[in-house]
Design a protein around this nucleic acid. Structure first.
Length: 445
RNA sequence: GCACCCGUAGCUCAGCUGGAUAGAGCGCUGCCCUCCGAAGGCAGAGGUCAGGGGUUCGAAUCCCUUCGGGUGCGCCA
């Protein structure tokens, strides 16, 4: 996985946690694109690496995947098949190589997700939809609604391909459900387009009885939003809403300098690179500091900085200070159980800065509600930063005004009220960090 | 050509599905740091919310339109 995928994974995972926190029952699914021509390309690319493993010069032709990540796959193929695949025609090895390469890639991806702390409930394979009748069933359902027909599409205006020829294809009448043009589900040779298994997969979800579906796509797939929504709308008779979150690019920087990334040259930065350098917590938080449909800058140097410029650090620092206050209060012999703190007389906290912090804490339930309703986990990240900011602000006032310090001498009602405020801040921060999937720290080191 | 996304302070971005003087961070300016953790703190300057219409008691937010940027557009997934 490269960094672009990471953002999608993080957004999806945080969204899942958010919705679960808001009371939904959530199933996280990973749709494996292991069907179609792209896996053949993968297999051919892996085969070249297999040849390389035998000391031969790999021929990474135009259209193949050049990435280094396939080198271990080549080695695995050598270990498995020895030299028996060398100098053989594609028909001899393609199917075996395809299977092993996709399996290895999935192991790799699952490892990447695990390193990020992302857990999936269901892995759905595109390939497994073929030959089971599921695609046919989904298409038949649409056909019975008179939404499938044989026809010819108009060429796109203004950008007509040179080799355009009218073709008769099986089309889905997506325009009946809000799309701009009808979309092909079958190629002219009768085989399925990628869209057909996608329809079948979503049909399967609808049949499993979900009340709401959420897809996460790369922003470059924005053109498929309408047709996918149209399909789900048709297949569920408008019952099941489908929300599609488009996740935009991640631009990598180091000290403000753009990090060169080229898929063509195979030098793109992988997830492991990022997580190894920045850590899973930092990576996750940073990926959520932008709205999903906007490009994101990720600066390696900055995310490791321990200062106010680094929002992850700033929030963690607040949490650590909270931990510090709680520890000191316990040392002072105070009862800091939630039951005891709930009895505290909060009317003793009347300073404007204290009121501000309380108001910020009071926003938390509403914030969760808004974020969950809009499927927008980034709101949680922003909220945490603001909350931490209020907290630090009040803390700093304590430097000049001892009466505002959270830790007060003696076991008085005022002291209890202040600790209750600290504890409440801590509750919101740890809940928020849990939604982001970031481990809260109790102490800074 | 069409569709979708974006356009808010010098820069990077929030902004609660219509509500009070539009908010942060960076940068800039000026003060402050033997004091619960100064790996800093406080304060200030800085905005025709891209432009123009419309709906509304009320618009950054909703509708229309223009401009600018991005993405995509039939046997590629």
């Amino acid at each position: 996985m490269h960094v672009g995928h990471v953002r999608g994974a993080v957004v999806g995972d945080a969204l899942s946690r958010l919705l679960a926190f808001a009371g939904w029952q959530v199933t996280r699914e990973y749709y494996i694109n292991d069907g179609g021509a792209q896996v053949d390309v993968l297999a051919r690319s892996a085969y070249e690496r297999y040849r390389e493993a035998h000391g031969l010069e790999p021929e990474i032709r135009e259209g193949l995947y050049p990435g280094d990540y396939l080198i271990p796959v080549g080695a695995a193929l050598k270990a498995r098949f020895g030299d028996t695949l060398l100098d053989k025609g594609e028909q001899f090895w393609l199917s075996d190589v395809r299977e092993i390469a996709t399996d290895l890639m999935m192991i790799e991806i699952k490892g990447d997700l695990a390193a990020l702390g992302v857990q999936m409930d269901v892995y759905s394979s595109e390939k497994s939809l073929y030959g089971t009748g599921q695609i046919e069933a989904a298409i038949k359902t649409l056909r019975d609604m008179d939404l499938i027909y044989e026809g010819t599409l108009e060429p796109p205006k203004g950008k007509e391909p040179d080799d355009w020829e009218p073709r008769v294809q099986t089309l889905f009448r997506s325009t009946a459900h809000g799309d701009d043009v009808d979309r092909p589900v079958q190629k002219s040779d009768g085989s399925w387009t990628y869209f057909a298994p996608d329809i079948a997969y979503h049909f399967n979800k609808v049949q499993r009885g979900f009340d709401e579906l959420i897809d996460i796509f790369g922003a470059d797939h924005g053109g498929y939003v309408k047709r996918m929504k149209a399909a789900v709308s048709a297949l569920s008779n408008g019952r099941v809403p489908l929300d599609i979150k488009l996740v935009n690019l991640v631009k990598l920087y180091k000290n403000g300098e753009p990090f060169k990334m080229s898929k063509r040259a195979g030098t793109f930065v992988t997830l492991r690179d990022v997580v190894e350098q920045a850590g899973a917590d930092v990576t996750r938080f940073m990926m959520l500091t932008r709205k999903n449909d906007v490009p994101l800058d990720f600066d390696f140097a900055k995310v490791l900085e321990q200062s106010k410029d680094n929002p992850v650090f700033y929030v963690q620092y607040a949490n650590a200070r909270i931990g510090s206050v709680m520890r000191k209060s316990i040392e002072a012999g105070m009862d800091v159980s939630d039951a005891a703190l709930a009895q505290a007389d909060l009317s003793l906290l009347s300073h404007p800065a204290e009121i501000d912090l309380m108001q910020k804490i009071a926003e938390w339930p509403r914030l969760v509600d808004i974020a969950a309703r809009g499927n927008e986990p980034h709101r949680v990240a922003f909220y945490l930063y603001e909350l931490a900011s209020e907290f630090h602000g009040l803390w700093n006032r304590g430097n000049d005004e001892p009466s505002l310090r959270f830790v007060q001498a003696g076991n008085t009602a005022t002291a209890a009220a202040k600790v209750a405020l600290v504890r409440a801040t801590g509750v919101a921060i740890s809940a928020g960090l849990a939604i982001l999937g970031v481990t809260p720290v109790d102490e800074m080191r």
